[in-house]
């Protein structure tokens, strides 16, 4: 091979060119100018609305501060200490874990079951799809109000039910043991349609041939679901589980109209806890600390989930 071959200018095929080489050869295809033009707006917005508030919360979480003026009363880790010792926070964390569990093990299977029943494109199925999706479209606060009326033992649906059954009216949202069960029921009702839609979209993408081939091979419906449909929509299930977990960590606006965290602080989630004990009581420093904890939990879950599930699902 002659060292003076003209191809030397462009370097041997297969070797990756360095950035400076590419720049010199004009091989960046306008990617660099595109980056320079398109990146700053996103970067600025992200910094303004995500990074700055986050940094601020982190800073405030070390102060005893009511939100007015400049924080001066530095208390170190005291806010975190108080949270760690607060029994209501323990209940809130427990409740959040319960919501995650119910979302994963009750809501998702329910959504999958319904999706399997109605994923094919027929007019009846379109109707049921709409009906099941309606709760998701409804504003959280409205949903909370509707259900607080349903559960109301004096005037609500449960009152009429108790009357027609001839039993004593039951105030489930005021019951220490059962209030959170009611809350979780509403959560499942509100969000299963979202997961169902993800599954329906994925199921519609499964080639009908695969199902027919399985039928010919002798697979019955449950086996088709188990061996063909579910493996085929696994990426969608992984994504929906991710939304379920992250969503469960953030449940807030359903609970405020339903129970407002009561009775005796039994139905708080991490976010309603933050709202009640941080914001409404003007403990901005304390609330910020809760926010920081929540953020760390969420980011940890997200990173681990991506690492262990999403990657494998894609390959």
């Amino acid at each position: 091979m002659a060292a003076s071959a003209p191809s030397q200018v462009y370097s041997a095929p297969g070797r990756r060119l360095s950035l400076t080489e590419r720049l010199r050869l004009g091989l960046n295809n306008g990617r660099i100018s595109a980056t320079l033009i398109l990146l700053p707006p996103a970067l600025i917005l992200f910094t303004l609305f995500v990074m700055l508030p986050l940094g601020e919360s982190f800073y405030y979480s070390f102060f005893n501060w009511n939100g007015y003026g400049v924080p001066t009363d530095f208390v170190g880790l005291q806010n975190y200490q108080r949270i760690a010792d607060h029994s209501v926070f323990h209940v809130a964390v427990g409740n959040t874990v319960k919501i995650v569990a119910v979302s994963l093990f009750l809501q998702m299977p329910l959504a999958l079951l319904l999706a399997l029943l109605i994923y094919r494109k027929t007019p009846t199925n379109a109707f049921f799809r709409l009906v099941f999706f309606l709760p998701y479209i409804l504003a959280e606060v409205a949903a909370g109000l509707i259900w607080s009326f349903v559960f109301d033992g004096n005037y609500g649906v449960s009152a009429s039910l108790a009357q027609s059954l001839g039993t004593e009216p039951f105030f489930i949202l005021a019951d220490r043991d059962w209030a959170f069960v009611a809350v979780m029921t509403v959560i499942v009702w509100k969000y299963f349609g979202f997961h169902m839609m993800i599954y329906i979209a994925a199921l519609q993408g499964v080639p009908e041939d695969l199902v027919e081939a399985a039928r010919i091979e002798g697979a019955k419906r449950p086996q088709i679901v188990r061996y063909v449909l579910v493996p085929q929509i696994k990426p969608a299930i992984i994504v929906s589980a991710f939304f379920a977990i992250i969503g469960a960590l953030q449940v807030f606006d359903l609970i405020i109209p339903l129970t407002n965290g009561g009775p005796s602080n039994q139905t708080h989630t991490i976010v309603t806890y933050l709202y009640t004990f941080g914001l409404t009581r003007l403990n901005i420093g304390f609330g910020s600390a809760v926010g920081v904890i929540l953020f760390i939990v969420a980011i940890t879950v997200a990173v681990f989930y991506q690492r262990f599930f999403m990657k494998r699902g894609q390959s």
């Binding site: 080639p207 041939d209 695969l210 027919e212 081939a213 399985a214 010919i216 091979e217 002798g218 697979a219 086996q223 061996y227 063909v228 493996p231 085929q232 696994k234």
Partner: peptide, 26 residues
């Protein structure tokens, strides 16, 4: 009967062996 589809209709998540074996396993 058995049928061979134009699209082959193989199960992408199974190995060749599992694909061939599927009906026998069922």
């Amino acid at each position: 009967i058995s049928m061979v589809f134009q699209s082959y209709a193989l199960y992408p998540h199974m190995t060749v062996e599992q694909n061939i074996d599927f009906g026998l396993r069922l």
